[in-house]
Design a protein around this nucleic acid. Structure first.
Length: 271
DNA sequence: AACACGCCCTGCGCGC
DNA sequence: TGCGCGCAGGGCGTGT
C-alpha cells in the first residue's frame, strides 16, 4: 500500500493529532508477523514525544522507546475518538483522553517494532535503518551522490525501487517517474545518460511531493488516519493502465514483469 | 558481492 | 452463484 508519500501523510497527520498524548493501554495480536513486539508493557504510561518517517517506516518517539511501524501492502493506521476493532486489527493503543490509534493489516506484511532508546540510536543502530540511502525529499538528496549509484548492472527500475540508494520509491512511483522521464524500465543503469540523470533527479521529489499534496494514492487500501482517501491515482500515466491509451501519444500502455513486479510503460514515449 | 526469485498472507476481480 | 486462478503500493531469506 504505502510508498513514501502515503507514509509521509500519516506522519504529518499524526503529528497534529497524537503528539503529547499519553498511552494508557495497548494491545498487540499473537498473529504471525514478520516481527512482533517483544514486550508492549514498556509503552504503558509513555508519552508520544515526536513522529518521524524514514524510508517507508513511521517512527513514533515515546518516552523510553522507538515504536516503528511499517504498513506493508495493506496496513492502515486509524486515529479515532472511539476505538472500533476490525477483523484484522493487530495493534492498538488507547490514550489517556480515550482516543485511540489502531493498526489494521489483512495481509500482515507490515510490522510493528519496539526499540529502547537507551539501547538504540534511531538512525545509526536500529537494524531496519542501517543500510538505507538518501531521503529524496531532504537536503541530503545530492546529485553527485545520486549519479555515483549508476555504475551498476541493475535495471533503472529496480535501482529506483532499492532503498539502499534512494528511499521510499515503490512500484507505483517508480513506474510513474520513469514514464515522465521517458526512460524504459528495463534500461540498464550505466546506460542512463547525464541528461536523463538530471531529469530523474528533478522528477523524483516532484512526483513524490505532488502525491503528498494530492493526499497520496488510494487504489484499494490506503486511507488517511481519519479514513479518507487520496487522489493521486487519478493522475497516473501508466500504473494499472495496461492497454489504455498513453496520455501523450495515444499508444497502448504495456505491462511486463520485472523482478516479480509489474512494470507499466508507453512503448513509444519511453526508450 | 550483487542480483533474481520465491515466499509470506488475505482479498478482489475475472473467466469459466 | 460459485469456484479457482492470478494478481496486489513490500521486503526478507535463499540460492546462483
Amino acid at each position: 500500500m504505502p510508498e513514501l508519500p502515503e507514509v509521509e501523510i500519516l506522519k504529518r497527520e499524526l503529528s497534529t493529532t497524537i503528539i503529547n498524548k499519553i498511552i494508557s493501554s495497548s494491545y498487540s495480536s499473537n498473529k504471525k508477523f514478520k516481527r512482533t513486539i517483544a514486550n508492549i508493557s514498556f509503552i504503558h504510561n509513555s508519552k508520544i514525544l515526536n513522529i518521524f518517517r524514514r524510508n517507508k517506516y513511521l517512527i513514533l518517539e515515546l518516552s523510553d522507546s522507538w515504536l516503528i511501524i511499517h504498513l506493508g501492502m495493506t496496513g492502515q493506521l486509524i486515529f479515532s475518538k472511539t476505538l472500533v476493532l476490525d477483523k484484522h486489527t493487530h495493534f492498538y493503543v488507547i490514550f489517556s483522553d480515550g482516543s485511540s490509534l489502531k493498526y489494521d493489516d489483512p495481509r500482515r506484511f507490515g510490522s510493528v517494532d519496539l526499540y529502547l532508546k537507551n539501547e538504540f540510536n534511531i538512525y545509526y543502530t536500529i537494524p531496519l535503518f542501517k543500510n538505507l540511502g538518501m531521503e529524496p525529499l531532504s537536503k541530503d538528496f545530492k546529485f553527485n551522490i545520486f549519479t555515483s549509484f549508476f555504475n551498476k548492472t541493475k535495471t533503472i527500475k529496480s535501482f529506483l525501487m532499492d532503498a539502499k540508494y534512494v528511499c521510499g520509491i515503490g512500484n507505483i512511483y517508480a513506474n510513474e517517474i520513469l514514464f515522465l522521464a521517458k526512460i524504459h524500465p528495463t534500461r540498464i543503469g550505466y546506460k542512463i545518460t547525464l541528461k536523463e540523470k538530471k531529469i530523474l533527479y528533478k522528477l523524483i521529489p516532484e512526483v513524490l511531493e505532488k502525491s503528498i499534496n494530492l493526499g497520496g494514492s488510494s487504489i484499494s487500501d490506503f486511507v488517511h488516519t481519519n479514513g479518507t482517501t487520496g487522489e493521486m491515482q487519478k493522475f497516473y500515466n501508466v500504473y494499472g493502465r495496461t492497454y489504455l491509451p498513453c496520455n501523450i501519444c495515444n499508444s497502448k500502455i504495456e505491462k511486463i514483469s520485472q523482478n516479480g513486479r509489474s512494470s507499466f510503460f508507453c512503448p513509444k514515449c519511453q526508450s
